[in-house]
Write a protein that binds this DNA or RNA. Sequence first.
DNA 1: CCGTATCCCTACCGATACTG
DNA 2: CAGTATCGGTAGGGATACGG
Lengths: 116, 116
Amino acid sequence: MESFQEAHLLAGETCSGRLTPETCSVTRTLAFVGSKWTPLVIFRLRSGPRRYGELLQLLPGISPKTLADRLQTLEAEGLLTRTVHPDKPPRVEYALTGRGRGLSDILDAIADWAVA
Amino acid sequence: MESFQEAHLLAGETCSGRLTPETCSVTRTLAFVGSKWTPLVIFRLRSGPRRYGELLQLLPGISPKTLADRLQTLEAEGLLTRTVHPDKPPRVEYALTGRGRGLSDILDAIADWAVA
DNA sequence: CCGTATCCCTACCGATACTG
DNA sequence: CAGTATCGGTAGGGATACGG
């Protein structure tokens, strides 16, 4: 039990000493997963790879800048892959990684918790 | 499977139609759980009820205003209870609700995912 | 088609001082 | 002790126009 604490200790974070937002892996995770549109982007990629333009349509109201930002962040965090196909016109596909699917399972748990 | 989708449908949210940040229960949850210090406040309450001043000490670097704001939000969301004991000097205790513990279990899952 | 560049705005968050 | 009041900085996010 107290796995929240254990997980932090595993990550080399000190619980009895200082535990700040900057050293907390949960805070860090929520900081980018919690940014606007990010859960919906992940959700839209669960059914398979999607192109930039497709995502723009599937997420009515998002701006191109915001979508690009979310995709870059998620790629940097290793949650999705960006694949450029050498076609004309250019074709770019985004797909969840295994790690991204792992996070989407947690989003499932949150959805269940929220409606319960 | 696809419980992320199912959970949204359960909540009366339309997946095939419009799914915006404003109508997404996951986005809404992460919007306040993801705010700075919130996970750590929850973490500090897992071991039992705490007083305002105790939390202030247990969370080095947090400002009284921010702590008060987090506690009020968490109370409004039903994640903790605020109990005023009629003592002199005044004594106020905060304790996680069952729902709050449910969310802290999800934070556990996030911590595990983050270090894996 | 797939993004970037630019501008702006506001909502979050922190520091500090003060009160019931 | 347990907060509120006030002020100010900053980073996130949106609208729009433009570039490779």
